[in-house]
Amino acid sequence: MAQAVSQNDHGHHDHGHHDPQELKMLGFWIFLITDVILFGTLFATYVVLHHNTAGGPSGADIFEMPGVIAETFILLTSSFTSGLAVLAMNKGKVKQLIGWLVVTWILGAAFIYLEVDEFAKLIHEGHGFSGSAFLSSFFTLVGTHGLHVSMGLGWMLLLIIQLSRRGINDVTRGKINVISLYWHFLDAVWIFLLSVVYLMGVM
């Protein structure tokens, strides 16, 4: 008797099989919301603490803008090249896709190199993570973004391997769409970082 509900209709439905790529895309968007909250909390922490230098240096004393501007330029370019990668994918050109991913990867790695270099300099000058509340929150906020970019680099490497093995199919296409979204997101976060931390810091 309980079966009746399911008997109403069964002709014109795709036997309950939802498009997994569509689910993943929505899931990833929601994940990005959580990541926005995560960065939002870190930004709030930084804003609260950035005056608490405990007698140590402030942002204006230690930020070196040329490096930061180079980082910005590199990351923005990498966002553009990741967009070109998606365009190539949509045209079905595997080699072109992999090529643009490699370019994006190199730019991302350059960004990380510059950031690590900046951090190393600061630490070398005695302005390490545990110097003051300002420094702790600065390293954590910027470092978390850097960690996100690094995770993205690792992931992109895996995708390049997968693409070269399997070519473009539904699964890899979904993955490329997701990582490109992620990459643009990190770019947007960096713009906020640049404004809130660096530009407002040196002003």
């Binding site: 922490t45 609260v48 603490l49 608490n52 993570f129 545990s130 003051s132 509340a133 702790s136 954590t140």
Partner: peptide, 16 residues
Amino acid sequence: AGGHFFTLDGGGNPMM
């Protein structure tokens, strides 16, 4: 790691 987010010294802020 010796951070100063919520410590008493180093400019930390437990209220946060």
